[in-house]
Amino acid sequence: ENVVSAPMPGKVLRVLVRVGDRVRVGQGLLVLEAMKMENEIPSPRDGVVKRILVKEGEIVDTGQPLIELG
């Protein structure tokens, strides 16, 4: 699984990683606000951040690609 998608609609509050960062399974990639709750979106696997597909403040839909892992 190379693309991390939004599990719910919401607003991207914070991106916690940068392109080139090594991440571990379960590590927070970004914080999504949904229904006034902050939800940290975890990495599904170990890898390297290849691309960040959203910006802070952006509104996303369920299933929208957020981050690509390499």
Rank of each mutant, 00 (worst) to 15 (best):
E1R: 15
E1P: 14
V3S: 04
V4D: 12
V4T: 12
A6P: 00
A6E: 02
P7Q: 03
P7V: 13
P9D: 10
G10M: 00
G10V: 02
V12D: 15
L13E: 04
R14F: 08
V15P: 04
L16K: 12
L16V: 08
L16G: 07
L16W: 11
V17T: 07
R18W: 04
V19K: 10
G20N: 12
D21P: 11
R22D: 11
V23K: 05
R24K: 10
R24H: 01
R24A: 13
V25N: 11
Q27D: 01
Q27T: 04
Q27L: 10
G28P: 02
G28N: 13
L29H: 13
L29V: 02
L29D: 15
L30H: 13
L30A: 09
L32R: 14
L32E: 08
E33N: 04
E33K: 04
M35H: 11
M35G: 11
K36M: 00
K36V: 05
K36T: 05
M37R: 09
M37Y: 06
M37E: 06
E38W: 05
E38C: 14
E38N: 11
N39T: 06
N39D: 05
E40F: 00
P42R: 06
P42C: 14
P42I: 06
S43W: 01
P44Y: 06
P44L: 06
R45F: 07
R45C: 14
D46Q: 03
G47R: 13
G47Q: 03
G47H: 14
V48R: 13
V48A: 05
V49E: 15
K50C: 13
K50M: 05
K50R: 04
R51G: 09
R51H: 09
R51I: 12
R51N: 04
R51F: 00
I52Q: 01
I52K: 00
K55H: 08
K55V: 02
K55M: 12
E56D: 06
E56I: 01
G57K: 10
G57F: 10
E58R: 07
E58N: 10
E58H: 05
I59Q: 01
V60P: 13
V60R: 10
D61N: 11
D61R: 05
D61S: 09
D61E: 01
D61I: 03
T62D: 07
Q64Y: 05
Q64V: 00
Q64I: 09
P65A: 10
L66P: 15
I67L: 00
E68L: 04
E68T: 15
L69V: 02
L69P: 02
L69N: 03
L69R: 14
G70L: 00
G70M: 13
